[in-house]
Design a protein around this nucleic acid. Sequence first.
DNA 1: ACAATAAAATACTAAAAACTCTTTTATTAT
DNA 2: ATAATAAAAGAGTTTTTAGTATTTTATTGT
Lengths: 147, 147
Amino acid sequence: MFFSKTCEYALRAAVFIAQKSEHGRKVGIREIAAGIDSPEPFIAKILQDLSKQGLIQSVKGPTGGFYTDAETRSNTLADIVSAVDGNRLFTGCGLGLKECSASKPCPVHNEFAQIRDRLSDVLHSTPISQFNEQLNLGLSYIKERGF
Amino acid sequence: MFFSKTCEYALRAAVFIAQKSEHGRKVGIREIAAGIDSPEPFIAKILQDLSKQGLIQSVKGPTGGFYTDAETRSNTLADIVSAVDGNRLFTGCGLGLKECSASKPCPVHNEFAQIRDRLSDVLHSTPISQFNEQLNLGLSYIKERGF
DNA sequence: ACAATAAAATACTAAAAACTCTTTTATTAT
DNA sequence: ATAATAAAAGAGTTTTTAGTATTTTATTGT
């Protein structure tokens, strides 16, 4: 809706990893792909990128996998979005103008700025670990069906 | 930001045409491309599509061009968005899940639904002729510089 | 030390979005 | 009628996004 497909996968994966690693567990790519309904090699690619940017941790080898420590887990959805989609969502103009500001606005500038700011607030104020509990309780989902 | 590039051009062009044709004028592709800062053949393509969908009118030949009659001009920004980008913005899930609803929500479902509904309201309640006056007065812009 | 495991790195293919070019068709003024 | 004009139609190309496959590197249990 608002994000690239890559970013949607990244968000789901980050939330999934945060949930699973809340008590020290690590999860492998296979489990992540299954847990969020994503193509395995594609999410692998995305996770490498997030890992490089410090938004998730990983260890190689047997018993290895991806995880997040408490600090990393407190990064927000906005951090993931910025890392993957850049800041176009937070700074772009609704009609695609490069110069668009309060002093030289596009016709929808003010209305859209409000909406965008609301979205930005939500993303910036939501840590990726925010949903651990509701996911554990089955109150929300990050894959289509089953478990 | 929220729309495809094609859709951004379409919105700017629709608004431009509505403004120019308010008093019966017709505008050619060259003038439109210049007026909204878009590649000429690309906006031509987009306009053909909008025309086919009845969101703008056109006549061929000398003195021809694009215009909108009063009724067409009362179509909303949402009509343009739907015509070009489909309804993914109005119905899609923030995390890309196909099945996402109040009864089986993704973690961000409720927050995002609010934001999406707000955006939807704005788009559905704004006719493409809404900005004619402020554009005439130079209070808002649909191209980068000059005029 | 070494075999097994799992992520990292790299290079690749496929599909979609963005953008261009050429030809055709309709209109109008002469 | 015809020449000029301007959009419609259709068939490209380029770039970006999405997704795959192959090899390398790090870790760990034996």
